[in-house]
Write a protein that binds this DNA or RNA. Sequence first.
DNA 1: CTGAAAGCGCTTACAG
DNA 2: CTGAAAGCGCTTACAG
Lengths: 342, 342
Amino acid sequence: MSTIHEVAARANVSIKTVSRVINGESGVAEPTRQRVLTAIHELDYVPNLSAQRLKRGRSELLALVLPRVESPYAIKLFADILAQARKHQYSVLVFEHCLDQPRQHKAIERGVRNHRVDGVIIAPPGGDNPDLVNFLRAVQIPYVVISPNRLQDHACSIQITEYLGACEATRYLISLGHRRIAHITCLQSERFGRERLAGYLDTLSENGLPAPATLVSEGDNSVESGYRAANVLLSQPEPPTAIFAGNDEMAVGAILAAYQLGIHIPDNLSVIGFDDSAISLQIFPHLTTVVQPIGEIARASVECLLEAIEDPNAYEDHRLIPTHLELRNSCAIPKDRRPGRP
Amino acid sequence: MSTIHEVAARANVSIKTVSRVINGESGVAEPTRQRVLTAIHELDYVPNLSAQRLKRGRSELLALVLPRVESPYAIKLFADILAQARKHQYSVLVFEHCLDQPRQHKAIERGVRNHRVDGVIIAPPGGDNPDLVNFLRAVQIPYVVISPNRLQDHACSIQITEYLGACEATRYLISLGHRRIAHITCLQSERFGRERLAGYLDTLSENGLPAPATLVSEGDNSVESGYRAANVLLSQPEPPTAIFAGNDEMAVGAILAAYQLGIHIPDNLSVIGFDDSAISLQIFPHLTTVVQPIGEIARASVECLLEAIEDPNAYEDHRLIPTHLELRNSCAIPKDRRPGRP
DNA sequence: CTGAAAGCGCTTACAG
DNA sequence: CTGAAAGCGCTTACAG
């Protein structure tokens, strides 16, 4: 591969002039610029990033710390962050994060410092790992954390409207006419699980509806737990006419349980999920769900991080990304409220 | 961050000696080595990769070209390749590949040359894009392609036993006693779809079973297409007692269709998928499936590529990774063959 | 066993 | 508007 010297020789200029053209600096006569551009084109010259980085003292490299869970959420987030970073001329290095392995953060630390990464984006649940976060603070590398359990631990964070999203889902079911609305909870050890439950409970009480304990069933975020929870909920003497599941996986579990019990969705049971993950469109009927806008999360993360890199001193930014309800085919007016039926 | 000079000064040696210690070269007296190690530790020194790369003329960087489809397959492959690369001290840069955008490969080309990537792994279906492949050949960057449609186009390729996997699935259903075994095909424009179909057909005929056209239904790899295909298959006068779907998504579609028709799985219908993707464990009953061993694919890809990087001259290697059948709960002996039933 | 010199391919002041 | 010099932080021959 050719170097800046070969380009300079061919264009009959100094390497400094070539450098100016490459970096789009002003103060190069147009004819000169054209000559350089032609030489670059003819030699098929591409600057060596390692050399640029070495000299500039910035790597233009972002690290993304992802859990080794093969969730669709993670890959979508990754893809969107990649696209955002590219817009700003940054590359992304991915580090896997295994919560269970105690010395895992050592490998990340080494990679981050080895590559002289400019900043780090921490996907959930990495933000709750004190080792990683303390390290980044100690070496003064800017970072932004997505959906951490505790906001006050970080200078920059991105979160979504977990609570309001749950409120909107519940309000929608109420507006359809449902009065016995159940909730299958996400893991209550996570903040988002507690906020989604709170949104559900508050909306019920705001609308004068009771929320007996028999309408709240615990899940663990998995399809299977939603399936079990729904089986319990639906075999009560007075079963709910609608279920708001804490995430899409559990909503799918609930739909599978309904299938087996011969309960038609949405005619006899309405179901809402949360997240808009791939599975919500793989189930029939397609799942009405609270959309977690991953594209927006990615954009905000990169923006935040880049600003923190520009101005590392006491930079603080907490962004709240709005969710919205995506209406599909898993909800309907409850049977006893439908007109035209005997 | 400290440099090699500071370490050298503190340890009272030349930078060359520090370099020797960092790179594990022999010929350093043990006491000297210890002094250097201590200095490295005290200064918390981490070598600058950009400088090392610049000097060495190798980036120790692999590129992975992935489709922008948010498939669980893609992220698992990515995670496993990441882990394999790390073992060999390589980092991985990911490039998204959008088939539909004509100038997409330009961005990949630029990134690959900019970073002086040592080699490229192309995930399906990128290997069938002539632009990308021709570029890599032109600039002489070694690459390995995973599951391409045409093997002869590449020097290094990884594929799995699509045909044998389909044979094994079909043979298993026959061994249970099924005689009316249907197949929902993957897209026939892809080699893997054709091979899976061929494995199914050949195994039936080897066992003296007819394969009437009414038992083969076309799908397009999606859950929905499996759902539609199964509805057609199961509403025939003589419906199949088993369905071998070309992938897990379509198998799930078939299960959903059976649910709605009140057909119990596995009592009244056996279903097998292909791939062992996440969804196979999210459905009930859990899906018996032909496992595509992504970990092995990742290992073989990285190995192949590293060998090609070591010896770029006319290096050729085509590896075939074996699949295996993972027995779960979606298959049973057909009703009419079960003992103890009237 | 150890080190002084040169240079990888760029950019950053500085000079003209 | 253009360029000669110095140097980013390392490793590669070479010498002793």
